[in-house]
Design a protein around this nucleic acid. Structure first.
Lengths: 219, 219
DNA sequence: TTATGTGAACGCATTCACAGCC
DNA sequence: GGCTGTGAATGCGTTCACATAA
């Protein structure tokens, strides 16, 4: 597909399904594995096997963004990797703050996966005075009250919420007021936010209860 | 709906959508909030508002399991709570093991939400000799090599995988061989498992990349 | 009158199937 | 011949709308 067509494609880019984006993320991971193994091309079938999906699904997912493959051959591994990183916005650095310096917030501050993918943790906040000033890796826990001012000085792109459920909504409000438009929420509540704010919720209780349901309803 | 009908209902219980189960989990949380506030009844509208969904969705979700409400009135809060706990299998204790005593595994071992919902963490494993013997709360990290024997002696219901991506599939195989049939996977890979095994994956990298995609593709 | 329960309509993601190109 | 790209068909979760019951 020539470049001009890709541009037209992008203009008419319709709402991409969440599930599609999640799979792109998986495909990229497998591509990187293939890349380190030095393989030059990969077929939709091979990508599908690793991602637990079908080759048709892989091709459809990719087709939303252009046509990157060669018929009869497959996809060029480094090239498709580059394109996926572009599409997923991983070709730049995103500034991330963590609000809530408890167990989960702390674990995330130490998590290497962030930086590897271009997510740079620039601050960690808490309201608990016994936690403020504590160090996590190279970061010192700051008072949540300073969040708005800090963010005006050096804006972050993404805020991770790791506070208790009761505090999550008000923290979300604070974050949004401060001008951050993307939230990753670890609190077990559905945050109420304006349409222009993107939220991803990781609700462990929900997942566990999903397992519990499956166990309780076998046959 | 009389009891006999509920039983018939259960027999023909068709595959319940994942999304439905997740919402039930949310409804329960809000019901508990209402319960502590001492409210006796709740309407599908009120439940919907908190869960970020619609009243029709709430009623449809509940209708898969019976009819619990009173027309013109709503749902009895404690009664619906009891039914939801039953449906979700939260009226019993589930034994959970954690495999991988790194940052995330450690944070989960300390996480209070587990026990509150009837999930009892009975063991934590690692292969790293520098971690084996270390204490997390009341648990001592054991050698992963002992997992199968331990589980034969005292079977667990759910295994949580918090090992690096490269090790996740082999750990999953070990877990399945040991007889555990439900897995919560924190490694950023799609585990290949037999149909009778239930897996829930929490892939933080995927969620983050979802946010990155949203940020990169705004207008 | 108010709010549930549910068949029917709808919309959307997945799957199919095959034309098109290497 | 092999594998991609994609309109068409399918399947399924969500929404609608209204009959039903308190």
């Amino acid at each position: 597909m020539p470049l001009i067509c890709e541009e037209i494609h992008k203009v008419f880019l319709k709402r991409i399904a969440d599930s599609t984006v999640r799979r792109l993320s998986l495909y990229l991971r497998y591509l990187e594995e293939f890349e380190t193994r030095g393989l030059a091309t990969i077929s939709s079938d091979e990508l599908a096997a690793r991602g637990g999906t079908t080759s048709a699904q892989v091709r459809k997912d990719l087709s939303f963004f252009g046509s990157f493959g060669k018929r009869g051959l497959g996809y060029d591994v480094p090239q498709l990797g580059r394109r996926l990183r572009e599409i997923l916005g991983l070709d730049r650095e995103w500034r991330v703050i963590i609000v809530g310096a408890g167990n989960i917030g702390g674990a995330l501050a130490f998590y290497r996966g962030f930086r590897q993918r271009g997510f740079s943790i620039v601050a960690i906040y808490d309201t608990d005075t016994s936690k403020i000033g504590k160090r996590f890796e190279s970061l010192t826990v700051r008072d949540t009250a300073k969040l708005t001012d800090d963010n005006a000085a050096e804006p972050a792109d993404i805020a991770v919420i790791t506070v208790p459920a009761e505090a999550a909504q008000s923290v979300a409000n604070l974050i949004i007021t401060s001008g951050i438009t993307a939230i990753m929420n670890f609190a077990p509540v559905q945050l109420q936010v304006p349409d222009e704010i993107t939220v991803k919720t990781v609700n462990m209780a929900m997942e566990l209860e999903g397992l519990s349901f499956a166990l309780a309803n076998r046959e």
